[in-house]
């Protein structure tokens, strides 16, 4: 057997091991449960007779190269952007944990401690030039252990007419993300909004105060553990429960 064949054989073997039912099964079971029961009903009994069904979410996905899909014009410059960012970061390229291409959009998942360097490179590198930041959007995933709070930034390059997403996470126990106001001054109010609604502390922000809620408000209203509130409404003898207590489908 030639060495070339052996190499092929070994490669196949490694791939096969990944596909063994035992390993695939344990990976699947490690994923968080997103829904129980057949129809996801929470207010009434599950009439399917099989309420024990547990549907698991998919593990965090990462895309692999090539990021550009020749069939999809929206992805045309993704490979170039990924290469240029890697070149611009040099030794710090490890800050980008994974890259996800989904529905014609590219997301760079960045370690929070390196966020400022990454966005500075994205703004200043002549090949990248993401001049415009359209703010930060907080997202709360209570089941995403140790990565409960996500901060999502959308950047736009006017020079290259390109658009990317940068995402970073922080755990609930330590809700700190570095502020990028020093790079994008426009994020001043956007970061205050994310602090107000999600409790993400943006370290280095010039004045991180509440922006929408009153200064003495308790809690961060758009977190998933914060109730919507509301009162039942009576109409012609029937009572309509508040929205967060109505029947929900998952």
């Amino acid at each position: 057997m030639s060495t070339e064949n052996e190499a092929n054989h070994n490669g196949d073997g490694a791939e096969a091991a990944e596909n063994l039912p035992d390993r695939r099964g344990s990976e699947r079971l490690a994923a968080p449960v997103v829904r129980t029961g057949m129809f996801g009903a929470t207010t009434a009994g599950d009439t399917s007779g099989y309420g024990g069904l547990r549907v698991r979410g998919s593990a965090p996905a990462a895309s692999s190269r090539p990021f550009t899909d020749p069939e999809d014009p929206r992805t045309a410059d993704f490979d170039r952007v990924a290469d240029d960012l890697e070149a611009a970061l040099g030794e710090g390229a490890g800050a980008v944990e994974r890259i996800v291409v989904d529905r014609g959009e590219i997301t760079f998942h960045v370690r929070r401690d390196a966020l400022v360097e990454v966005v500075r490179a994205l703004r200043d590198d002549p090949a990248l030039r993401y001049e415009l930041c359209t703010g930060v959007s907080g997202v709360h995933f209570p089941d995403d252990t140790d990565r409960e709070l996500h901060a999502v930034y959308h950047l736009r390059s006017i020079t290259h007419n390109s658009q990317i997403r940068v995402e970073t996470t922080c755990p609930d126990a330590d809700p700190h993300v570095p502020s990028i106001v020093s790079v994008y001054p426009t994020n001043d109010w956007h970061e205050r909004e994310a602090w107000d609604f999600f409790g993400i502390v943006f370290d280095g922000h010039p004045a991180l105060t509440r922006i929408q809620m009153p200064d003495d408000w308790h809690g961060h209203p758009q977190r998933k553990d914060y109730p919507l509130g509301g009162v039942p409404v009576e109409y012609r003898g029937a009572t309509v429960p508040p929205p967060d207590e109505r029947r929900a489908y998952k």
Binding site: G40, G57, T134, G135, S137, H140, H154, W189, K250
Partner: peptide
């Protein structure tokens, strides 16, 4: 630029929707 960042968890309701409203940004 009016931007909408929508997140779904696979359900029948939005998991999170955020709007980048131009007036909000411009008042800065």
């Amino acid at each position: 630029e009016l931007g909408c960042h929508a997140v779904s968890d696979g359900g029948t309701r939005p998991y999170r929707v955020h709007f980048r409203d131009p007036s909000f940004t411009h008042l800065q």
